[in-house]
Design a protein around this nucleic acid. Structure first.
Lengths: 196, 196, 196, 196
DNA sequence: CATGAATGAGCGTTCATTCAT
DNA sequence: CATGAATGAACGCTCATTCAT
């Protein structure tokens, strides 16, 4: 019965601390000294756990994308029709929003930085799969008459994907619960703001 | 009678060059050296025209907000009902999108940086007015039965404002004209993606 | 009539200061702060003149190799027989010794560091040419009976090249003039230490 | 009755591992982490065996110098004339070359580093004895007419001592056996490269 | 107005070393 | 004995900014 953490818990803890800072300030704007300060250690000591700042970012981003991709795949596989799949994607996305605020912020603010590096090539790959999933769903929905016939699948995808990830940056103002946000989004998405 | 530009034209040119870089990379991620390189001068020489990098940002941001605010005020003043006002805001927003890509990118990527500085206090003031305009319109629309009765005005505002500014960051991919984007947005906004 | 140096003189001066330190301590063991200190400026200011510590090393090494290669080519082209060519190489090598102490020290102490980098690929190329020149001369001398028939050209080359560059590291103890050293070397080289 | 090594064997093994790295990269260019990696332990664990990186260097250097000095003393004591003594020194040097590659590399590459520290004062002492031995032999040989009358003993010593230690740095290219090298050296030394 | 040279603070990172467990 | 976590000083380098010429 000891209070000491297991080895990997220390690392995980540091990733979480770093993630909080990344979520607030973005990746590039966060210094390793800020991360170290948050952990109460010196900046050099971080390198006992990670071999670079980027590898912390890597850990956060890849965990996020695995999560998201798994969600998308499950949504498509286990839904009967495009509308249901999209609703499921939206709901599951919102759930991951809280756990992956850092990744979202990094994707939004530091995309240029990451996407240029070979190490983060998987970002582009994952994004491609996400895009393809949306477009497939939107086109199938259009063909089966569930969605508007004049829907531009690619344009709608771009709007929706970004919209879905927007609330991340709304700080933790706690003005709304994630449930409220997702409901508002779904209503807006399917019904618009007009009264019926 | 010389062909050289007037001082203010030179300055304006430099701001435009800087703006292009800010739009692509964000404010913090852009170095004064990159700006100077684009202008074909040395970085130190920029300080004959501006007393700091921030003052370039200031110029870009305040011009943008004046433009936007003017648009919002005109939209409200000259529209008969909330729906018309919102449509006008959306349409005019898209027009400013092209002219103010730099400002939008800066607001999205470097908000933390600017909003903390006294010098940029006007950012918060302007944002407040924008927010209030939206909320007024949405609530009036709800009260007059034009919009859904269960509409959360504040939540919808946050979503809409950000959504409106999203396409800025879509690089100059030229996949869609701004007209296409605004139409797609308006359809999504008023009607959702469901077929009628 | 001004005492100010021309632009390139400042740069040249800094390279010389850096070279003095490299000659004493080697390249890796010398810090940019030491170089800056020697110049009376801050370490960051060096980067106004060079884009990296390595580029200073590059400048020193490539200048040396150009010099040496030119000497070798001239020696071969303008000498009647291998013995004369070798004597000329030895004499000219010793002359460059003083001007290029830094480069020699870097080659001796930091070869591993430089030779691994693509940027310094020319080091290997130049060394190959030097080696080939020696081997050609030694073999021709052996064939024409000037040198011993049992001479191992490649082994002798390795010994001689290194021997030629040895005195560089003898600090500037000034115990011997370069003339004394070169004479000693030539006697040793051609005649050994035995009495006739 | 266990198969585990005795403490001192473990230590010796670590010194050997460290020595291999020092021989390849030099002392300063080798990190304690590399040594620990080679031993399959963590860098901090090395400090259970040595109280500093320098003490590993110390062990290697002092062992080498004891060996060399013993060889020199024996050569002088058991040789009839200077020429025989020198030949014996050269031959025994080559034998130690293999066993002490690390020490030689350290002396060549990191002399500045060690010679400045009081802890390594014995380096200077030993070098003095080596120098004196050579000079005595060369001068005696000159006086007895075995060597050239115009031989500069001190200059020749410097050349010879360094030349003798040169082949160490020729990696383990295995182009030549140590016997070949020593023969080449002796021929060069006594006879030069001229044909008889 | 522009240049060329510099500043000074801070960046991500390395490394020998220490020490409680 | 070894580990895992940390230290602290230094490293090469970046960048907004200043200023004499």
């Amino acid at each position: 019965m000891t209070t000491s953490k297991t080895p990997s818990e220390r690392r995980t803890h540091l990733v979480r601390l770093a993630g909080d800072l990344f979520a607030e300030q973005g990746f590039r704007a966060t210094t390793v000294r800020q991360i170290a300060d948050a952990a109460g250690i010196l900046s050099g000591s971080l390198y006992h756990h990670f071999d670079s700042k980027e590898s912390i970012g890597d850990e956060i981003l890849s965990a996020f994308l695995e999560d998201v991709l798994a969600g998308y795949r499950a949504a498509v596989a286990e839904s009967d029709d495009p509308r249901a799949a999209i609703e499921r994607i939206v709901r599951s996305s919102t759930a991951t929003l809280d756990r992956h605020r850092a990744a979202l912020t990094m994707l939004q603010r530091d995309w240029n930085y990451f996407s240029g590096q070979p190490r983060f090539a998987y970002l582009r790959t994952a994004m491609k799969e996400i895009e393809q999933t949306w477009i497939d769903l939107l086109e199938r929905g259009r063909e089966t008459g569930v969605f508007r016939a004049d829907l531009d699948a690619r344009l709608t995808y771009r709007l929706l994907r970004d919209i879905l990830w927007l609330p991340t940056s709304w700080a933790s103002s706690k003005s709304w619960t994630t449930d409220q946000i997702v409901d508002g989004l779904l209503r807006l998405l399917f019904d618009g703001i007009k009264s019926a």
